[in-house]
Design a protein around this nucleic acid. Structure first.
Lengths: 70, 70
DNA sequence: ACATTATGCAATATATACTTGACATTATAT
DNA sequence: ATATAATGTCAAGTATATATTGCATAATGT
């Protein structure tokens, strides 16, 4: 599914996909596809993105949905 | 680097690498290499491991080290 | 209206996660 | 001493993340 949290975190920092891509060492397309939910990034890339945006893995990549008690 | 937190979380649940591997749908070798720090798992695999062990991404895969102020 | 920046979306190519199968080591149990 | 379970590791194969290039479009600025 789409990663809205990432898109929002990037908007908060006011940086483009291209700028974020440069900072974490991947291409613009890779960032675009992660935001679009088109694939499954590696852990190290997720960590690099989090650090670039001042967030944690749970902030950007953890869904609290189906593993919570009601 | 080695993922000691994962090894500990697995020990707390008292399940083998093989049992965890079966629950998350990968092979025993994959779990072994993640614990040994030999590679860079995908996000979806990390999430599956966390759910199988009742932990979050930050619990098992986030290092607070170099992004902290002194 | 035109230029520029940001984003979306393909096709093909390459690097690497992950599998499979096999063998070795360690620990525990009988 | 022997059997079994858990783990480490290696080589070869397959699947997929990521790169590269290119084109299209929307938004913003001049």
């Amino acid at each position: 599914m789409k990663n809205i949290k990432l898109k929002v975190a990037r908007a908060e920092k006011d940086i483009s996909q291209e700028e974020l891509a440069k900072r974490v060492g991947v291409t613009r397309q890779t960032i675009g596809m992660i935001e679009a939910g088109k694939f499954n990034p590696s852990l190290q890339l997720c960590i690099a993105i989090c650090k670039a945006l001042g967030k944690t893995l749970n902030d950007l990549f953890w869904e609290e949905n189906d593993n919570e008690e009601i």
